[in-house]
Amino acid sequence: MTVPSTVNEGLGAFLAATAPKDLARVLTALADASIEVASRIRRGPLGGALHADVGPDHDGVAQKALDVFADQAFIGALKGSGVRGVVSEEREDFVALDSDGTFLVAIDPLDGSSNIEANITIGTIFSVLDAPPGTLEAAHFLQRGTRQRAAGIFVYGPHIDFAFTIGHGVSVATLDPEDGVYRITTRRVEMPQASSVFSINAANARHWKAPVRSYIEDLVEGEEGPRGRNFNMRWVGSMIAEVYRTLLSGGVYLYPEDSREGYENGRLRLLYEASPVALLIEQSGGAAIDGYRPILTIEPESIHVRSPLIFGSKDKVERVARYYGDEGEARLPPLFGKRGLMRR
């Protein structure tokens, strides 16, 4: 399939030329739902208390009103689109949809919901998989990331972007506020390799394992350290914003496992956060690992299983992997563990 050469072409025409018809139908349904969600977000507090707690979700974290609205909007839009079932972060069990559907969707309907009230970029992450034959069951969703048919993110920021892949590169569509239509604005994203930006929550430094502490130590030491150059840290606290910035600008993002209770195996969900993000990153020329393995090679053990996630420019991720594999556990991390220069 060839990629259309006209930027600002409508999303529908682009998908008609680049995606199988049945897969284009699913992506179109997701895009339609995102417009509904974006409209609610755009109204802010005029649309109600979107950040209000409305009850605990399946793992004890309070759901926000916008979480529930987005979940219902996406699942509602996918009915009749050829999707047999959906796994959502907002629901403990899968939801059965079209009995004759040929696809499965795993989705985080609203990533970054803790930032709703602060008007910080939030978004949606999704993965599309083939539906195996037979009566739908949870085990059907437990497919490694290499088997994804499509993946994407909707970014609800100053403008609305839809970054997606169907397996041959990453394209970006932007929502035209004049007519409510997504238009292709980037045909193929190529992640820059030359970047001095790293993203990590430094407040958790005391909990990190040696490989991560050693890697970040070397970055923080800048020109005086072994890397011989200065780096900049960015941390939005909304992963969707970090993903999109990294896609467009390069760098490296780390959300590793650590020693805190509940974080030993990472915190992000493999099926509908780490895997679709990893596919986007790899399709743009980057890499994504859990520290030791490529994210896309990991077999999910359950629909809500968690994973560490490290992604970004390929050379930077490969360097992090060397800390894990060759030197991380053997090195003493003096900046965080001994000299205490990051503490007051």
Rank of each mutant, 00 (worst) to 15 (best):
E261Q: 11
K338A: 14
P109C: 10
V181P: 00
V105T: 09
K314N: 07
E242V: 10
Q143K: 14
S313G: 12
P20D: 15
S313I: 04
S171R: 09
E318L: 13
T135E: 15
E327F: 08
D67F: 08
D176W: 01
N204V: 00
P133D: 15
T124A: 05
D22L: 04
L129Q: 15
T165H: 06
D53P: 04
E257Y: 00
V95N: 00
I303C: 06
G134V: 03
S196L: 11
A29S: 15
Q148W: 05
F141L: 09
D71F: 05
R245M: 08
R84Q: 10
I184G: 07
G80C: 07
Y215Q: 01
L50G: 11
V7C: 03
L15K: 10
V105P: 08
S99L: 08
T102L: 05
S5E: 15
R206P: 00
G55D: 05
T2I: 13
E261V: 12
Y156H: 13
D258R: 12
I41V: 13
L219G: 05
G112C: 08
A173I: 05
V54T: 11
N201R: 08
G180E: 02
G285T: 02
R188G: 00
H168L: 01
Q72S: 12
E329F: 11
Q72F: 09
E137C: 14
F336I: 13
R322C: 01
F141D: 07
D57V: 00
E217W: 03
T124M: 07
G266L: 09
R267V: 13
I122Y: 03
H51A: 15
N265Q: 12
F231K: 06
R245Y: 12
G55I: 06
K64S: 15
A13K: 12
Y244S: 09
